[in-house]
Write a protein that binds this DNA or RNA. Structure first.
Lengths: 194, 194
DNA sequence: CACATATTTCAGAAAATTCTGAAATTACAG
DNA sequence: CTGTAATTTCAGAATTTTCTGAAATATGTG
């Protein structure tokens, strides 16, 4: 591996991290390298710096392209492919989350919906279905929030995240400003009526 | 595998999903099984239902305990260990996020902080450090938000998530109510001054 | 089209991981 | 203590994943 120590530390770390994220070491290393690099790199550059085989780099880049995490570019008068990451780290995060949702959440939701359609044949199955419904509803809430937030431009997103739960305070303020008298929402002692 | 088809579908799915999350198939299956089960199960129950070896189950349960995802219980007059998941799915989510943060984000932040202390020895390293700083700041923002939100009770958390980016509307309203005249924040045409 | 260069594919080697059965350890009941 | 049931450990087998080198394919250029 032929890298400044500072860069190498980071690259090695992301190689290891990769395994926890269902991507292999080389893919993690390639991405880390591209992320840190000012200029886009071609496959041969990556081979030299990481010390892995050309074919391994080829497969790694293909996977990163499938994840939409890498941008293919060309230099005039050079027909090799150069790869880089978006300059905007927020775009990287958005892509990552989007792709993981597509690969992990969406198929799970499909499966949950299917299974929830079936008729339970026993008390055990009924309980299992109930649990699956809880998971389904939870995912629905989370993906709904995500879809909503993904639409915000970065500035507003940062603003929202910076506030964190202080938003809560503002909500309470709003509630106090617009009390609907007699509304259940405003009762302290919500008696489970009916 | 000895399970109602409905349960089996779910268990198999989570077994496969496990691989994408850095946990192995058996661990995923055990957790899925416990999640769906009304009563806590002992190791032998799990062996029978999943059709894997006793030792594999033992290791899987150990890992789930290390993740804090599973609760050890006892039945009177029975000295076997029984395992179950929390009834509250939100508690499960909170634990999952907390543990992943501990294993993935925290070590990465430590590494980033270390590397950012070093003196860059070249323009290349300076740029790499700049990128790492961006990542560091991003993680800081996200973990700050997370710490904040993790503190909310579930009811308020759900409320917040349900609102999604509609919070934005309320923020704008607040801004309009409390305009600070002349503040840059309120200018339409933010000229890159200086 | 022929030639050179770049990239991809893929069979099998290498490495890593998961899983098992047997043995060891632990925990308790009598 | 002794015996038994429950659990854990761990060496090696089985499986899966990753990686490589060689060959095939693609993408130009003159």
């Amino acid at each position: 591996m032929n890298l400044p120590s500072l860069v190498q530390t980071f690259v090695l770390h992301f190689g290891e991290m990769g395994s926890r994220w269902g991507i292999n070491r080389t893919v993690g290393q390639i991405y880390a390298l591209l992320y840190l690099s000012k200029e886009p790199l071609n496959a041969e550059d990556i081979v030299e710096r990481l010390g892995v085989s050309r074919s391994n780099v080829s497969m790694g880049l293909k996977e990163l392209q499938a994840w939409n995490l890498v941008r293919l570019q060309h230099r005039p008068g050079d027909r090799r492919d150069y790869f880089g990451t978006p300059d905007d780290i927020w775009l990287i995060v958005r892509t990552l989350v989007e792709e993981r949702k597509k690969r992990e959440i969406d198929p799970t939701m499909t499966l949950l919906r299917e299974v929830l359609m079936q008729e339970p044949a026993s008390a055990e199955e009924r309980h299992a279905q109930e649990r699956m419904r809880e998971m389904h509803d939870l995912f629905e809430l989370l993906t709904g929030w995500y879809a909503d937030v993904q639409r915000l431009d970065t500035e507003r997103l940062v603003q929202l995240l910076t506030l964190g739960s202080k938003v809560q305070k503002i909500l309470e303020m709003k509630d106090r400003l617009f009390v609907v008298p007699g509304s259940k929402k405003n009762r302290r002692d919500d008696p489970k009526d009916k």
